Structure formats: C-alpha cells, structure tokens
Simulated assay, not measured.
Amino acid sequence: MTSKNQLLKKRFTYALLILIVIAAGLLSRKTTLVPLFVGDLLYAVMMFCGIRFLLIKSGYQKIAIISLAVCYGIELAQLYQAPWINQLRSTTLGALVLGRGFLWSDMVAYTAGIAICVFIGLYKVHFQFYRKGE
C-alpha cells in the first residue's frame, strides 16, 4: 500500500516534470534547430504527466489511454473552424493549448510521446522490482 507521503512525493515529482517539459516545449519552438514534431511529442509527455498527477494511483495503460484521447481530441477539434474558437487560437495561450490546424503528423508525435512515457514507466517498475530482489 502506498502512504500519503509517497503519493505526495510522486505528485511533486510529476508537477516538477510538467514544468520542465513545458519549459522544454516552449524552448523547442524558439529555435529552428529542433524539429517541429519535438514540441508535439513534448506536449503529449506533458499531458501524460498531468493526467498521472491527477490520477496518481492509476496504471500506466489507463494514463496512456486517457492522455492519447485528450491529445487526439484536441487535434481533431482543430478541424472545427468557427470564428470564436479561431479567435482563441490566434492568442499565444490559445495556440499552445488548442493548436492551430489539424496535422496527421501531430497524431504520430503524440503517440510517440505517450509511448516513451509508458516505456520509461514500465522500465522504472521493472528495474525497481528486480532491484528489490538483490
């Protein structure tokens, strides 16, 4: 069973990761040296960490599915081009949260970002399991 202190420590870790990933994502958009898909990949990583922060006791598979659903939903919502939402998208924050236009390549980047999070999480769990056996 996980104690409250352990849950708080995990939440703090995920909150810190969210801030780091947001900073890295913003920096990735400020330079032409970083390919554009990296920002979308980091957006998915941030979403995974955010969902994990909220549902700290849930497994990686559930977090991955929810994160992908949110990322895909936001991307698909970019197909909707009403004036009011386009006005939101024209702001910096609106563009960062809602995106500007639908791209299939973004869906691939989101999938890769979530997959990386799942593999890191499963590796961490696997490593901890075998480390306890030493």
Rank of each mutant, 00 (worst) to 15 (best):
L19S: 12
L19Q: 04
I20F: 10
I22P: 01
A23I: 09
A24N: 04
A24S: 13
A24F: 10
G25L: 02
G25F: 03
L26H: 03
L26T: 03
S28P: 01
R29H: 13
R29D: 03
R29G: 03
R29Y: 05
K30H: 06
K30F: 03
T31R: 12
T32A: 14
L33K: 09
L33G: 09
L33I: 10
V34Q: 03
P35T: 06
P35F: 03
V38L: 11
V38P: 08
V38G: 07
G39R: 08
D40I: 07
L42E: 02
Y43K: 00
A44G: 07
A44N: 05
M47L: 13
G50F: 08
G50K: 07
G50V: 06
G50W: 05
I51K: 00
R52T: 11
R52S: 14
F53K: 09
F53C: 08
F53I: 06
L54R: 11
L55W: 12
I56C: 05
I56Y: 07
K57A: 11
K57S: 13
S58A: 14
S58I: 00
G59W: 10
G59Q: 13
Y60W: 13
Y60E: 15
Q61P: 00
A64P: 11
A64R: 07
A64M: 12
I65P: 07
I65Q: 14
I65S: 12
I65W: 15
I66Y: 12
S67R: 05
A69K: 02
C71S: 14
G73P: 07
I74Y: 01
E75S: 05
L76Y: 14
A77P: 00
A77R: 04
Q78S: 05
Q78G: 06
L79K: 14
Y80M: 12
Y80W: 15
A82L: 13
P83D: 14
P83A: 11
W84A: 11
W84Y: 09
W84V: 10
